[in-house]
Write a protein that binds this DNA or RNA. Structure first.
Length: 260
DNA sequence: ATGACGGTACATTACCGA
């Protein structure tokens, strides 16, 4: 059975309830992982009427927030507060297929890529170090890790590798920390496994006059899987169209399917 | 090319995002 998972930084789930409904209706993933819900859990809109009656979430007022929506029941298995920030940035749930889904919203890290002058950058690196330690201690099996990891690791994950080398999200130290997380869990970058060639973006700034024409994007949103979980070859895609929907999120949904 | 945008809240400006 194919299990299709989608991850999307929605930038306020209440403001964009209609966009979530459109995605669920048009694309019908089995599981939708949202980040930046910016809502307490009890105020997240219900999508039960569209067939998504199961939700596992962590929320807080105004910032952060992660939710996993599913057509089938979910069992919450973890909600980590890496680096002790007190933020709603992770939740994990098990699907009846036996697949564990980790939904992450990694800290953005502020403006300056130097932890000595920018506390947020240090928190981002510490958050990634704690993720690494978790997956070193517990090697994931039949698991997927998705979310807004706020790092574009590869040269073709940004519009200009050279111009972004010192920009938070693409600095070598962040890329090294993310790679440490990936290696600690033996995670496979499913998107790049399926789409190894060429530029690939999932985020475009609101500030560009014409985001699509400028196309100065970054691949910040990721789908990883443990090596024992077979994927449906070629099933990875980024729904760039959704960045052009009315009142869009600045992130596009990322999809992959698994053979469960 | 640190931005011309856009979200939320102890709101009409401050803070955050990346």
């Amino acid at each position: 059975m194919p299990l299709t998972i989608c991850t999307w930084n929605i930038n306020s789930v209440r403001l964009r309830e209609a966009l979530v409904a459109r995605l669920l209706t048009e694309e019908a993933p089995d599981i939708l992982c949202l980040q930046e819900c910016k809502s307490p859990v009890e105020k997240i809109p219900s999508f039960e009427g569209l067939g998504y009656g199961h939700i596992i979430a962590r929320g807080q007022k105004g910032y952060n927030g992660v939710a996993i929506l599913s057509r089938q029941p979910l069992e919450e298995v973890a909600a980590h507060d890496h680096a002790g920030l007190g933020h709603a940035r992770h939740v994990a749930a098990r699907h009846p297929s036996g697949v564990t889904v980790h939904n992450y919203y990694v800290p953005a890290g502020g403006d300056v890529a130097d932890r000595e002058v920018n506390e947020k950058f240090g928190q981002k690196l510490d958050y990634l170090t704690d993720m690494r330690d978790l997956f070193s201690a517990q090697k994931p099996e039949r698991a997927v890790l998705v979310g807004d990891l706020n790092i574009a690791p590869l040269e073709d994950d940004v519009w200009s590798h050279k111009q972004l080398l010192k920009v938070v999200s693409h600095t070598p130290i962040e890329v090294a920390h993310l790679e440490d997380v990936r290696q600690a869990g033996n995670w496979v970058d499913v998107t790049r496994d399926h789409l190894p060639e060429g530029k690939l973006y999932s985020w475009w700034s609101y500030r560009a006059r014409d985001w699509s024409a400028a196309d100065k994007g970054r691949r910040l949103d990721h789908v990883w899987a443990s090596p024992d979980l077979p994927t449906v070859p070629g099933s990875s895609r980024i729904l760039r169209d959704a960045r052009g929907w009315e009142k869009p999120s600045d992130h596009a949904p990322v999809f992959a399917s698994f053979d469960v």
